[in-house]
Write a protein that binds this DNA or RNA. Structure first.
Lengths: 107, 107
DNA sequence: TTGTTATTTCGCATAAAAGCGAAATAGTGG
DNA sequence: CCACTATTTCGCTTTTATGCGAAATAACAA
């Protein structure tokens, strides 16, 4: 069951990982696990400037990790790839060298 | 069952994701899913210079994604976090908007 | 010891990411 | 239309990543 990975696919995957490769962006994801939040909430949570948080959000959205929706004056972001959150718990366990149950891992 | 994520933990996670955020490093991971390989094999697979591939490997090893072992003149690398490979299949499906079975996802 | 092979480290140049304030944009209400 | 608020984009500087060749290191063989 070996699937060939195309360059295009690999580049896309790398883009997702790159988007996740920043502590503040992971912080944003944590904030969004409970549900959608407006940008103002995320600015509070992260503690950087509006422009910086906005850029983080656009990186995550561009990679397909988040989706956004404008309602009135505010823009609400939510997680578009739920498996990411579960994968991170798996990662933590893996990095500590603990065995991990398959079904607790992701998606 | 909400777990508080520490800054340290988040930074470590981000380091793993950053390490995975490069197409050539994902190519290396693909090469290693079948088992360990020496650096020379990976240089062939990736197509960059020895110094570049060696740096990619050290980034992945530093993040805890790979482990290495020296035997004779050669150094062999292998995957230290098997869940990463399964997660990527999950990612592909998620990015295409397909529903994904939980148990096929990782670890 | 000397030579040879496999790999890593160093030094440097170029490219990309991060972060911020200022300006721009887009809704909303008067 | 004007003012106000929420958010994004722009322009810029600083930091970090990438990639290469050259030099260094390590293990083995003669």
């Amino acid at each position: 069951m070996k699937t060939r990975v195309t360059l295009r696919q690999r580049t896309h995957r790398a883009e997702v990982f790159k988007a996740l490769g920043h502590p503040d962006r992971l912080r944003i994801l944590e904030e969004l696990t409970d549900g959608e939040r407006c940008v103002c909430d995320l600015v509070d949570a992260v503690g950087s400037s509006w422009s910086t948080v906005s850029r983080h959000l656009s990186v995550l959205k561009e990679a397909g990790v988040l989706a956004d929706e404008k309602r009135g004056l505010q823009v609400f972001y939510r997680v578009a790839l739920p498996c990411v959150a579960t994968f991170m718990d798996c990662l933590d366990a893996g990095l500590r060298g603990e065995p991990v149950e398959m079904r607790r891992c992701c998606c």
